[in-house]
């Protein structure tokens, strides 16, 4: 899988749901239809990190940490080659409906953020660039997940977080009237606010006040 093309370091590659990752003995392959693509250790690490949330730059850093014998520039070059190969072979995210984009996050979260905003009568999105709005929603949901996992005694874990998100979205879809109450009950939520000047999100519950950077990896 070679042949590098231009890859944006800030992009978040996402593996295609239509691709199977299978192990046979010590070897791992990607399968799509009748095509079989063997993966070496680095390509496997890249594939596993193509979750749609991890930026290429971070993929490089994580792969470099796994390959301390290589310098970062060499790892970066290999990562770009591997990602280019995924792209060229149609292994990254594909929209089969022809609508053009991956499914957007459910609008339910935006509405809930409005409902629990410190100033519920003022649009929380006002003056906030769209990309920053998306980060606020993502961080808000992540914090709720942390409350939920803590209440259930679960360790923070990607699969658990995914299950939480799906459970909440299923609730929003099927019982929209209960969704706000379900969110509130996760942590006895009172209200939240965004301190744009400090790039912080603050969540006030009946029992505690959470304050944290919008992007905890910043």
């Amino acid at each position: 899988m070679t042949g590098a093309m231009r890859i944006d370091a800030a992009s978040h590659p996402r593996r295609g749901f239509h691709v199977r990752r299978r192990r046979v003995g010590d070897r791992v392959f990607l399968l799509f239809g009748t095509a079989i693509h063997p993966l070496d250790g680095l390509a496997l690490a890249v594939w596993d990190l193509c979750d749609g949330r991890t930026a290429v730059g971070e993929i490089v850093l994580r792969c470099a940490a796994l390959n301390p014998a290589l310098d970062v520039a060499a790892v970066a070059q290999r990562v770009v080659e591997v990602l280019s190969g995924f792209e060229a072979h149609g292994l990254t995210w594909r929209d089969f409906t022809g609508a053009g984009a991956p499914p957007a996050p459910a609008p339910a979260w935006g509405a809930v953020l409005q409902l629990f905003h410190e100033h519920a009568d003022r649009d929380w999105r006002e003056g906030v660039p769209q990309e920053e709005q998306a980060r606020i929603v993502a961080r808000f949901v992540r914090i709720l997940y942390e409350f939920d996992a803590s209440a259930r005694g679960h360790a923070l874990e990607p699969a658990d977080e995914q299950a939480f998100r799906e459970r909440m979205l299923a609730c929003a879809r099927e019982r929209p009237a209960d969704f706000a109450a379900a969110v509130r009950d996760l942590c006895a939520l009172r209200y939240w606010k965004y301190r744009r000047d400090e790039y912080k999100i603050v969540i006030v519950t009946e029992r505690s006040v959470y304050s944290g950077d919008l992007d905890h990896r910043r």
Binding site: A99, R152, H154, Q162, A163
Partner: peptide, 25 residues
């Protein structure tokens, strides 16, 4: 536990639109 909860979330219904169905897939 996470697989259990995710399984039940997935079992709760298939959307009616093509985009929703693809998302479900």
């Amino acid at each position: 536990g996470p697989a259990y909860e995710r399984y039940w979330a997935l079992s709760s219904g298939i959307p009616a639109t093509a985009a929703g169905q693809q998302d479900f897939v």
